[in-house]
Design a protein around this nucleic acid. Structure first.
Lengths: 280, 280
DNA sequence: GCCTGTGAACGGCTTCACAGCG
DNA sequence: CGCTGTGAAGCCGTTCACAGGC
C-alpha cells in the first residue's frame, strides 16, 4: 500500500495545514477547507496504477497490429470490468469514439503523457545485493524510459565493480552523484538497517520519489513520495488467505454434512474441492 | 465470499481474474444475496497487509526488551495513525488494556495466528533468472515460516544446478513436485510469455496462492488468490507523481507570482530540512 | 486521567445505468 | 444500434470522537 502519508494525491502546493495527526489532540475540528481547488487534475491513485496496466496491455494489442479496441476488450485483457476501465479513461479525457471504441495509438499516447513517460526518469539503485543485482541488470528497466544511471553500496568489494555496465559507487556520494545525474527515482534495496540512512541521503540529493524494497517503514518529509514493495507482507497476506481457505474448507465440510447432500462436489484429496461460485 | 481481490493500491494489486466461465455472460442479476453470512471474520484486505507491518514492528520492539506499547507508539513506528491501528487490531479481537496499552508478546501471538503464520507455508519459485536467483537466495524467505522447497525453470543450463541449496527442476514437473511437497504458495518470476502457462501448472498442482512478479495479468479460477508485484507499474506511478510535482511547481511559481509574496515556503527541492516526524 | 474499543460520520473508489453520439 | 462518457448510487475503508474500563 503504500503511500503512507494519507494525503490524497494532491501535491498541494501549500503544506496542508492539518497535517500532523499530532498526538490525538482533541482539536476543535477546524472549519472546513474548501479544498477542491485542484485544477481538475484529480485522478485517484488506484486509477493511476491501472492506467499503467492498460498501457502495457495496449502495447501488446498494438503489436498484434490491431488498431481499435472497445472498452470491453481492453477491460478483459486488463482484468477489470469495462465500467471501471471507462471511468479510469474518462479521468484523462475523452479519446474514444462512441459506437466504435478507442484508437490504440491515441490511447497509448495519452496514457503515456499522463503518466509522464514522455520524459526519461533517471533511476538510482542503492544496495547491490541479490535484489540490487537483479534490478541493475534489468538494464533500462521496464519498457525503457527509466534508465538506471547509478548504483550504490558500501561493500568495499563491490565499489568500482561494474554491474550491468555501471560501476558501483559509495553511498556517501549519493548526494553529489544523484544531483549531478538528476536522478528522479531512487530504489532502495539495502538491508533494513541501512534503509533509512540511504533514504535520507537520497532526499538530501533532491530525489523526491522512492521505491523501497527494504522491509522498513521509511520516514520522509511530506514532499517525498514513497512506494514500497514488501515481500514479507505479500507472503503473509497470502498466508492469511491460505489459513482462511482452510477455515472455510472446514466450514464447508460442516455445512455439507449439515445439508447432507449437495450435488456432485467431488471431494478429491488435494482438491480444495470447493470450486467457489458461492459469491458471498 | 471468495475473497475478492480488493485492489489495494500499492504493491499488491490483485487482478480480478475473469475466469473463463464469466466472459460477458449477461447473467440475470439474481435478486439480492443477503451476503454477510460471513462468520464475523471480515477483516479488510488493507488491514491484513497492515497487520503484517505491525507484526514486524512489534518484533523490533520486542527485541528491545519492551513489554508494552500504546497504540500511539505502535502507530508511529508503523507509519499509520493510531485510530487506524486500533481499528485494525479490533478486527482480530480485544487484546489491549485500557489505560495501559498492548502487551507486545500477546499482540505478536495473535497477529501471527490470524495471518496463519503458525504453520509453515512451502514456497515454489518458478523462473530462476536474476530475480528468481535473488528470491531463491533469500533462503527461507522473510522471517522464516516460508521455506522455499522447489525451484523451476526451463533453461537446460540451469536444470539440476543447485541455487541457494536447491536443485532447479523442469517446469513440466511442477504438478508432480508441488503436489508432493505440498507447496501452498507459488512465486512466478518468469518472463511474461511463460507466466500464464506456469500459473496454470501451479493451479493444476493445487497451489491456490500465487505471488506474481511477471508483468502480466494472470487469469485464474476463482478459488486462487493472486497478488502481484509489478515493478513497471510502481515506477510509472512514481513517474506520474514526478510529472504532477513538476506541474504544481509551475503552478506554484505562477501563484507565487500572483500573490506576490507568500511566506517562508522554501521551494528549494533539496530543502527538506524536515525530518519527518512521521507521516501524518 | 489515560488509553482502548467502537459506532457513526465521512470520503473516495466502484458499480450502475442511461443519456449521448457516431 | 453499439459503445462511450458520466452523474448518481452504493459500498467500503478511514477518520472521528467518545463511551468504557483501568
Amino acid at each position: 500500500m503504500a503511500a503512507q502519508r494519507g494525503q490524497r494525491n494532491g501535491v498541494g502546493v501549500t503544506p496542508p495545514a492539518p497535517t500532523a495527526a499530532e498526538i490525538t489532540t482533541p482539536i476543535p475540528r477546524v472549519a472546513e477547507v474548501p479544498a477542491a481547488r485542484e485544477r481538475a487534475r484529480a485522478i485517484p491513485e488506484a486509477a493511476v496504477a491501472r492506467l499503467a496496466v492498460y498501457l502495457r496491455v495496449l502495447s501488446g494489442i498494438q503489436e498484434q497490429g490491431v488498431g481499435t479496441v472497445s472498452s470491453e476488450e481492453l477491460a478483459v485483457a486488463a482484468g477489470v470490468n469495462s465500467a471501471k476501465l471507462r471511468k479510469d479513461l474518462s479521468y484523462i479525457g475523452s479519446y474514444g469514439t462512441r459506437g466504435v471504441g478507442y484508437e490504440v495509438v491515441v490511447l497509448i499516447e495519452e496514457i503515456e503523457r499522463i503518466l509522464g513517460l514522455t520524459r526519461k526518469h533517471s533511476v538510482a539503485v542503492v544496495g547491490i545485493g541479490n535484489l540490487g543485482h537483479a534490478l541493475a541488470n534489468y538494464g533500462g528497466f521496464p519498457g525503457r524510459g527509466f534508465p538506471v544511471t547509478c548504483l550504490f553500496d558500501v561493500d568495499p568489494d563491490l565499489l568500482g565493480v561494474p554491474v550491468g555496465g555501471l560501476p558501483v559507487e559509495h553511498i556517501d556520494d549519493i548526494p553529489r552523484i544523484c544531483a549531478e545525474r538528476e536522478v528522479s527515482i531512487g530504489v532502495i534495496a539495502t538491508p533494513p538497517p541501512a534503509a533509512q540512512i540511504v533514504c535520507d541521503r537520497l532526499v538530501e540529493a533532491g530525489v523526491a520519489c522512492i521505491l523501497n524494497f527494504a522491509p522498513v517503514v521509511l520516514q520522509v518529509p511530506d514532499h517525498v513520495e514513497v512506494r514500497k514493495v514488501d515481500l514479507a507482507v505479500e507472503l503473509q497476506v497470502l498466508s492469511f488467505h491460505v489459513a482462511r481457505r482452510a477455515d472455510s474448507a472446514l466450514e464447508a465440510t460442516r455445512l455439507a454434512a449439515a445439508h447432507q447432500h449437495v450435488n456432485g462436489v467431488s471431494s478429491t484429496v488435494s482438491g480444495n474441492g470447493v470450486n467457489g461460485m458461492v459469491v458471498s
